[in-house]
Write a protein that binds this DNA or RNA. Structure first.
Lengths: 270, 270
DNA sequence: AATCTCTGATGAACAGCGTTCACTATACAT
DNA sequence: ATGTATAGTGAACGCTGTTCATCAGAGATT
């Protein structure tokens, strides 16, 4: 987290002219920005609100952050702190990919409208590189051909972000539609109500024009978000697996022993 | 389409008090908005610019469009005009899905920053329902179990949108970095230069900390965007196919007639 | 032909936004 | 005690989305 330990006494004179009080830092600004974000949402997140949260003039922020866009970028990069994909395990790459996607979604849910910020963020930043490297490591451990690594990452991460984004849009809708009646418990209820409304809407569509929607009116909405997400990830993983199998068939000796025999333990370093 | 045919003379008196000149319509506003969008990009697209484009006061827009958000939504829905997935063909569902994704990406490239608008758009709107129905029809024709239809659509469309979004972000970067030197031909050149820079950046990373990125520095960037996109779609289609095969095995009598078997090479036509 | 009505368009205004800049106050070094 | 660097200030600029009292001008009515 924040690496501002209290300065030891004999080090005080070593520090450059330095500030007083609690100095403003990028870190504190990002913290404040998250606080504001959670309170007011992405649309009304403004530099002025962030400054107010810190008890500071707006212009003070610009000494540490060159623009609002940069601040959003910093918020985005926060996501990758303390998030490192695990050491690749060839036996369990499927589980590792699934787990990666799940914690990604969870991180996107940690703050309101986070997905929208992630979408605008630029994925090739130095801070995110170790993250990216480890993810690719998992793919390679899973015997995915190297030429697929990029596309695999694209598919996984666009699905993760896009899914979370759609979820957060539903969330916004629900939130603005219930601006009064701010009960905590009405959340799930109203969600169920929306689902029921949608389902009956689909069911009562003219069947000649929308045969498929009518036929699936029950199935489409019966699943929870978690189930839908897992299903999507499963689709992707199976697609990846088909390439891995292909690869194993052409490159490694027997397709049978591919998983049982611990093929190449450490395929990195190459 | 716009259903404002010229009014026949004897119908003129039938029409409600009606306007004069060329009346402002939602359609004309959306047209103007697209013109402005292509000229100035998503960030500087404003109601005032749209009004100016139409030679009209800003407030006039609000008689036809309740907010900027609604205008963006209308722009988003434009995408679905004249875009209907084909009649489902069980034999070629793979090609149909691939073709669907390709034209989706093409539509997102039709206007600058379109992907960002699409991301903010709400996918369950009445205008998009026929579209959705036909897409689901393709999945069902491909023997995909009904419980997968939703997730399948999610995966395909999030990948499509997310991929196009990332592309448009590269595009923006390139555009702002070359604010002078507005040659048309420097486009590809500067793109190649960016690619080369990135590749050597990856290659020269410390191999102990980023073994996978270094190892793949050549492979990661050698593909064109089209190839990367097609590869992503292929991954998804193969994942879907694995479920379809499963379904055919349990539900349909002979697994033989279930189209041309799974790991078909499926050459791309473009 | 004169009047009324209704409706789409107007322009000024409001509050808020991101960003800049001349400035001040403060804590350290001299 | 003086000087200096610097983090923070507050006012300002030009822009934004949105609202509202007002207006102009057709179609209908008299």
């Amino acid at each position: 987290m924040s690496d501002e330990l209290p300065v030891l006494p004999w080090e005080r004179s070593r520090r450059r002219p330095g500030p007083a009080r609690i100095p403003l830092t990028r870190d504190r600004i990002v913290d404040a920005a998250y606080t504001v974000l959670d309170r007011v949402g992405h649309d009304k997140l403004s530099m002025r609100q962030v400054a107010a949260e810190l008890g500071v003039a707006v212009s003070a922020l610009y000494a540490h952050v060159s623009s609002k866009d940069e601040l959003l970028e910093l918020m985005y990069l926060r996501m990758f702190r303390d998030w490192n994909p695990p050491e690749p395990d060839p036996e369990h790459w499927r589980e590792q990919v699934r787990e990666y996607a799940r914690t990604g979604r969870a991180k996107l849910h940690e703050h309101r409208d986070m997905a929208r910020i992630a979408m605008a963020g630029f994925p090739f930043s130095a801070e995110a590189l170790p993250h990216l490297d480890r993810l690719i490591g998992i793919f390679r451990a899973g015997a995915l051909p190297d030429r697929l690594a990029g596309a695999a990452g694209d598919v996984i991460s666009t699905f993760m972000n896009g899914f979370a984004l759609e979820e957060s849009m539903w969330e916004s809708r629900r939130q603005e539609s219930s601006d009064r009646a701010w009960d905590q418990e009405s959340d799930e209820e109203s969600w169920e109500k929306i689902k029921a409304t949608l389902e009956s809407y689909f069911r009562d569509l003219p069947p000649d024009r929308f045969p498929n929607l009518v036929a699936l009116s029950g199935t489409l909405l019966e699943k929870s978000n978690d189930e839908r997400f897992d299903l999507g990830i499963e689709i992707i993983i199976r697609g990846l697996a088909s390439f891995a199998a292909e690869n194993a068939r052409t490159a490694a000796p027997p397709p049978e022993a591919a998983s049982a025999e611990e093929p190449q333990k450490a395929p990195q370093k190459a």
